[in-house]
Structure formats: C-alpha cells, structure tokens
Design a protein around this nucleic acid. Structure first.
Length: 637
RNA sequence: GCCACUUUAGCUCAUACGGUAGAGCAAUUCAUUCGUAAUGAAUAGGUGGUGGGUUCGAUUCCCACAAGUGGCUCCA
C-alpha cells in the first residue's frame, strides 16, 4: 500500500497501480484533472497527479508530458502573481503551458519592457523562495463571478462555462486564480525560471478583440536544463535558413522587389534545380503526367472556381488587360480542371494524375511573412488527381506511400500524420462523400501500417485532408505534405466522366502537395542539414584546390573528367595557401575537396578531403569519380 | 493587418551626455607559389532605411512611412 498525504491534509492509502479515482474520491468533483501533493512510502515526492479521462494514474515527473504541463502551468501562476504585485492594475487573461514553456496574457496600460521582465523574474524568485502551497478550492458559479469581480476576462471565461459546473481555483499565498489545474504542490518546486519575450496577442486569438500583452517563459527543475534549453535555441539560431542562406549565398529578398518575393541566387537555384529534376523524374516514374499552366487567369475563371468568393483576401489585386480583369493565380487547380474539361473522359481513362511545379501568388499579411517559410510568391509541388469514386481508396494509399517515399529521399524519415475531418460550420459536399473520403484517408494510413492523429473538424470547407509533419535533425516539426479532397470545384466546374453504364458521373478530385512549396521546403532543408547538403543536392559537389600554379593544368584535367560525369566542380585557383582554401570550402559546406600538388600530379592521384571526416587519403581520380557518382546516385548524405 | 523591438560599409558590430562616424571579416592592389580550417602590407569603401520636424548643429531627440525580427491571426 502507498500512503498518500493529500494537499488538503487528508491521508489516503491506495494499492500500487490503483487509479487516481480511488485517491481523488470526494475531492475531485468529477473534474478531469486534479492536482495533489503526496507522500510515497513516507517520503515526500514531487507528485502532482493528473487524472486522465480513463482514470489512469499518471505520476508526474518533469519529463512526462503531464509533468511539464503542471510544472510550466504552476510557473505561469507564479508569474501572474508577480505581475499582479508589481502591476496591480493588470487584468489577467489566460496562462497555459505550451509545447516548450508557458505564457500568461495580461491587459496592461503599457507594454512590458525588458526591465519589467527582469523585475518580474526577481519577484518570481521571491515567490518561489516562499514555497507557498497551491491549494485547490471550488466555488459555484455566482460566487466565482463575485470572487473574480475585478477580472473581466476571467468573468467572461466563467460565463462561457455551463451553469452547473463548480469552478476550481488555485491559491498560493495571497494570489488566487481561476484554473482547472493541474499544479505542483508548492511554488518552491519550481527551481529555475527564464522569461523569454513579450509579444502582443489578441484576447481569445481573435483579431477583432483587444490586444493583450503576453509574456513567454520557461522553467526547469535544474539550472543545467536551462543551459541545455539555451544551447538548443542557439543551435536552432545557427541553423536559421535566413542566416545560412546569406552565408552560403543561396537566396535573398529585396526591399525593391517586394515583400515575400524570393530571389534565388546561382547556388540556391542549383539546389532547386536538383530538387525539381528529381521530383519530375520521380513523378513520371510513378504514374503522373506533367502539365504546365500560366501565372495569370481571367476573373471569370476565379469566379467559377469560387476563389473570388472565398479566397479573395488571399489574392493579389487584379490587373486590367483589354478591359478584362486578370488575377495572378493563388492556386493551380482551376487550370488543371480546364485541361480536364477540354475533352470527354471515360471511366477507362481514370485516374488522371497531373502534376505541376506551379508558381502561385498569395497576399499574405505582412506580419505573417517569415524568410522562405512564409512568402507571397512560391512554387507548389502540386498535383491534382481526378478519380472515379471506386478508385479513391487505392489512390489515396498510393499518394500516401509516394509521399513518404519522396520525403525519405530527402532525409526525412520521422513524421507525424494528421487526418482532418469535416468542419462544424459550413462545408460543401454530401455527408456520404465526406464519410467515404474520411474513412479512405484513415484506412490508407492504417493500411500502410502507420498511425495518425485525428484533427476533428480541422478539414477545409471543401473536403477532409491528410497532413504530414516531419521532424527535423534537431527535433522540430514542420508541416510539408497535404493531401486534400475537394468536393467544391468538380461541382462548380461541372466536371464529368462517362461511366461503364454510359451515365455521366462526377469524378473525385484530390489536391496534393508533397513538399508543400519549393521555397518552404528549401528553407526546411537548409535548417535540417544546417547548410551541409547531401552530395546529390550540394550546389558545388567537389572543390578542387591546386596547391601551386604548376598544378593548375592537372586540376583542369581532373575537373573536366568529373564535369563530364555531371559532377558539379569548382576550381579554387587563387594564389592562397591551401589551409585558407580549405577553410573557405569547409565553411561553404562543400562535400569533397581535392588537394592537388606535385605529388598527386606525378602519380596521377587525387588527395581527398571530406567535409565530414577531413583528410581521407589519396586515390586515383577514377576511383574518386566512382565514389562521388555512386553517392550522388544513391543520394547519400 | 495588430502589439513590441530593430534598421550605422557587402557581412558582424562599435560610437555614453546631440558637435556631420570606427573596427574585424569580405573586396581591390602588390609581394608571397605555399601540403589539409585564416601569409603579409597597402588601398578603397558610409548624403547613418526613406521623408519630415525640433535645434546654431541630428547617426543620436520627436513624427510619419518602408523593410526586417519575435509573437497574434493565417497557412504551402
């Protein structure tokens, strides 16, 4: 038996493995989560317990997901207490824990300054030192409203809850907050706090609401963990694609060109070429056909597609030509549909898989732009599938498999799949269609032996979708692939095919972008590899470093041989020491360097240096060529 | 778009109080022809994001605009 001393002073004895329901009986009021402090075997442990919906007992350690949740949530309360002490006029909004750390939103007369943050951190240290216990209590609605008389945002939250729910509060010292928990036993459990930044945030995330001041922070049980966190942040900063894009001269954005419009420099364009070339070949090999469509189209087209109705805010303003409005395309689909409609189609011809690296322009809010990850002009690796309903399930599986295969080619093998279902509000299409499509999506995931999370109501109004998020080299998630059903456009464009019985039928339409957009994908690739691209993608694959002018001719010969094999070679013939040239090639992340001096020239060899392993000795030029060509072919990192 | 912050040489950053800017790297030139992450010297480079205001005088203070950064919203 485990003896647990509860925060309210009571003692419970529970058998190991018993559920929290046994422990929490009489104090939880059926709430989904309850926080406790307890003794295990007579020893006080840092034990906040989370009551999961299924009643399982989750003993919290910091490293458990729930542990972090409680830890950071308690820290956010401590911050709120500190802010209330320093800024008594501040009104509290909400303060949850997030993926990494926590925040709290405040309504204050003026924004917080860095000095304010320092003062708040200091105040928090005092609260932590006081080690006040967090005491849970509940109140009926009317009394809860009265208790929060000075907190309009809290009152709004209370009013939105069902009337019969008892509201829980957590009190630490002189500070009480409306809160569902869970929390640590006392403020002293929090050891090391760092407030990170201040940002504006709309109340309830709605831009029509007042903008509040949000303070982000993070906390850990050990100071060393703060250092680890900071180190990871620094690592992420070093990998920042904007920084590496500059250092490796890959791309730029320009004030005069316009916001969110990318200039691809020669080295960046080289990588893009390699990505696109590979992408096209792979699509052709996998049953796709390539199509090409223009960058602009008449207003009437966008009227028919419905984009002018539901997507106008996302489109560039029209340009007038010969009395007609033309719009830059925000999507490629209407063009592909027009190709479809150019002919009659038999069920025998389906499915069509039409792919295009289609450049689109979307008006993104200026504040949303972010390096290559969010731009206004970008190229989607788009394709549209037009399939007969009975083909749909196998077709979905096929797209999913193809997608994961393509991601693997680029070094992304760790991913997370989400299926988004019909949104609650308005949506187009028949219920049966939605159901069949959603089932096909889920079953495709299962049939491939994969798992997925369901994003209930997360689909677009025109259809359900699968999204794939990949995990990069330092553990961050990025959304790349999206596979979306469209019940809207086939209807609007009155797309048909002739079925076996001679009747006209409506095909299913699936949009899919596997890499997402080339720009965004490139940005993520840069960060994933920290600029050190695999040999097959590297803009310069081999850098030849002749030692003296005497060796230049030999360098030219080796270079010509490699270039003939489609290897990308540069010669650094500058009058510099070899150490200097190596340093530069190394910083440019060139996979291989060939040092060519008199010795190599006389023996007909090349001295190979790899960016990863340094000097790897000499070999014949042919052997080296074989090695590099094989690595390029096999897409070796 | 909203909140906050930032904007000085190609890059990274200095100039406490208002008295018209300085360093490293890069570039250019010269010398050096060298063996696995920086050879030395010299030269050049800036109407301080743009426009306006305050002031005898503005890179410095104020305002507007633009771009960027971190968030909110949105999303490939």
């Amino acid at each position: 038996m485990i003896k647990m001393t509860l925060k309210d002073g009571g003692v419970r004895e529970v058998a190991e493995g018993s559920t929290i329901l046994d422990v929490a009986k009489g104090i939880s009021e059926g709430l989904a989560r309850v926080a406790l402090a307890a003794e295990l075997d007579g020893k006080v442990v840092d034990l906040s317990t989370v009551l999961e919906k299924d009643g399982s007992l989750n003993l919290l350690t910091f490293d458990a997901a729930g542990g972090k949740l409680a830890y950071w949530h308690t820290t956010s309360h401590i911050m709120a207490q500190a802010v209330k002490k320093l800024f008594p006029e501040a009104k509290l909004a909400i303060g949850p824990s997030i993926e990494a750390g926590f925040y709290y939103d405040f309504d204050v007369a003026r924004p917080f300054t860095p000095e304010d943050l320092a003062a708040i951190e200091k105040e928090m240290a005092a609260i932590i030192k006081a080690d006040a216990p967090l005491v849970r209590s509940t109140l009926p609605r009317a009394e809860a409203l009265e208790k929060m008389a000075d907190e309009p945002y809290k009152q709004e939250l209370i009013r939105d809850l069902p009337e019969d729910v008892a509201l829980s509060f957590y009190t630490q010292g002189d500070f009480t907050d409306l809160c569902a928990g869970p929390h640590l036993a006392s403020t002293g459990k929090v050891k090391s706090v760092k407030l990170l930044k201040v940002a504006g945030a709309y109340w309830r995330g709605d831009e029509k609401n007042k903008m509040l001041q949000r303070i982000y922070g993070i906390s850990f049980p050990k100071a060393s963990m703060v250092e680890e966190y900071v180190t990871l942040q620094e690592e992420a900063e070093k990998r920042d694609h904007r920084r590496i894009g500059k250092e490796l001269d890959l791309f730029s954005m320009n004030d005069q060109v316009g916001q969110g419009l990318v200039l691809w420099h020669p080295k960046g364009a080289k990588i893009r070429y390699r990505i696109e070339e590979f992408w096209r070949k792979k699509h052709l090999k996998n049953g796709y056909d390539l199509v090409v469509s223009p960058h602009i189209g008449r207003g009437e087209l966008w009227e028919t597609s419905g984009h002018l109705g539901f997507y106008k805010d996302g489109m560039y303003a029209p340009m007038e030509v010969d009395g007609q409005d033309y719009y830059a395309k925000p999507m490629n689909c209407p063009f592909h549909i027009m190709i479809y409609k150019e002919n009659m189609h038999s069920y025998r011809d389906l499915p069509y898989r039409w792919a295009e690296l289609g450049t689109v322009y979307r008006y993104e809010k200026s504040g949303a732009l972010h390096g290559l990850l969010r731009v206004r002009g970008f190229t989607q690796d788009d394709a549209h599938l037009f399939v007969a309903p009975e083909q749909m399930p196998t077709e979905i599986r096929r797209v999913l498999r193809f997608s994961l295969d393509l991601l693997k080619d680029f070094g992304f093998t760790d991913y997370h799949i989400y299926v988004s279902t019909q949104p609650k509000g308005k949506s187009v299409g028949e219920t049966e269609q939605w159901e069949a499509a959603t089932i096909a999506l889920k079953e495709a995931v299962l049939a491939e032996g994969l798992e997925c999370d369901i994003d209930e109501g997360g689909g677009a109004f025109y259809g359900p979708k699968i999204d794939i998020k990949i995990r990069d080299a330092i553990g961050r998630e990025w959304q790349l692939t999206t596979i979306q059903f469209d019940f809207n456009e086939p209807e609007r464009f009155d797309m048909t095919y002739i079925a076996a019985d001679g009747s006209k039928q409506r095909p299913y339409m699936i949009h899919r972008a596997l890499l997402g957009s080339i720009e965004r994908f490139f940005g993520i690739l840069i960060e994933h590899y920290a600029g050190a691209f695999p040999v097959w993608l590297a803009p310069v694959q081999v850098k030849i470093l002749p030692l003296t002018d005497r060796n230049k001719e030999y360098a030219d010969k080796v270079a010509a041989m490699l270039i003939d094999l489609d290897v990308d070679v540069e010669i650094d013939g500058r009058n510099e020491k070899v150490g200097y040239k190596i340093r530069e090639a190394q910083m440019q992340k060139v996979p291989y360097m060939l040092v060519l001096g008199d010795k190599e020239m006389e023996a007909g060899l090349v001295a190979v240096r790899s960016r990863k392993d340094g000097d790897i000795g000499t070999m014949t030029a042919d052997d080296f060529a074989d090695k590099v060509c094989k690595e390029i072919r096999d897409r070796v990192n």
